[in-house]
């Protein structure tokens, strides 16, 4: 059966946090080109604090909630509420589930995407994290619908997130701090799409390892 136990999957978030903390300088650097250069700093602070507080042996549901609480009550900025809502809605979607299969995982990331859409005002193509997140969720669903396995769908999700991230280079920002630059925002990756692709990539790799 292609599923992982919810209990013990809290460690996935420890891994996600480690990736964000490792990329603190890189995320701030790309943010600095068209934003104010604090994306990596604030993300690393929030994800790092969450990693210190969560129980890697606990459930993924609990770990997602710990991460959301830290982002919403201690980090602020734009990423606090956006990622805070995303992880909170992911936790709500998983709820008390004992195991996580492809259907539950697909529903979880879809709920996270809807959480981001609800609090923010961006659409696909606006040069935001949605440009990585939306195609990734769609690719996961499409892969499962085509009869692929959970790990194959995770590969498709990760690849779509990365392609979506790279697509932001050619976009002109429509919302957020870089949107006021108009054409001058073209030619640079969006920091939110980049961190989102990192998060989804870390999810994919850890779950794949747990499934095998």
């Amino acid at each position: 059966m292609q599923e992982i136990n919810n209990k013990g999957a809290g460690g996935i978030i420890s891994g996600v946090a480690a990736v964000i903390v490792d990329n603190k300088a890189y995320l701030s650097e790309i943010d600095g080109k068209i934003g104010d250069g604090d994306h990596g700093v604030n993300m690393a602070k929030g994800f790092g604090r969450a990693a210190d507080r969560l129980d890697p042996e606990g459930t993924l549901t609990e770990a997602l909630q710990v991460l959301s609480d830290v982002l919403m009550s201690e980090i602020g900025g734009s990423m606090g509420p956006l990622y805070g809502m995303m992880f909170s809605d992911m936790a709500d979607s998983l709820g008390e589930a004992e195991t996580i299969d492809a259907a539950k995982f697909g529903a979880m990331i879809r709920a996270g995407l809807e959480g981001v859409q609800d609090i923010g005002s961006a659409k696909v193509g606006d040069k935001t994290l949605l440009d990585a997140f939306t195609p990734a969720v769609d690719a996961f669903d499409a892969s499962i619908a085509a009869g692929n396995t959970f790990p194959e769908a995770l590969v498709a999700m990760k690849a779509a997130a990365e392609t979506g991230r790279d697509s932001t280079i050619d976009m002109v920002a429509k919302v957020g701090r870089s949107s006021r630059l108009g054409e001058r925002s073209r030619g640079v990756l969006d920091a939110g799409a980049t961190s989102c692709a990192m998060i989804l990539g870390a999810f994919a790799e850890d779950i794949t390892a747990r499934l095998s």
Binding site: D38, V41, G76, G77, G80, P81
Partner: peptide, 12 residues
């Protein structure tokens, strides 16, 4: 009060 150049939290 937010972090440097970053919005305060909803809680604050």
């Amino acid at each position: 009060v937010g972090e440097l150049f970053s919005s305060p939290t909803a809680k604050s």
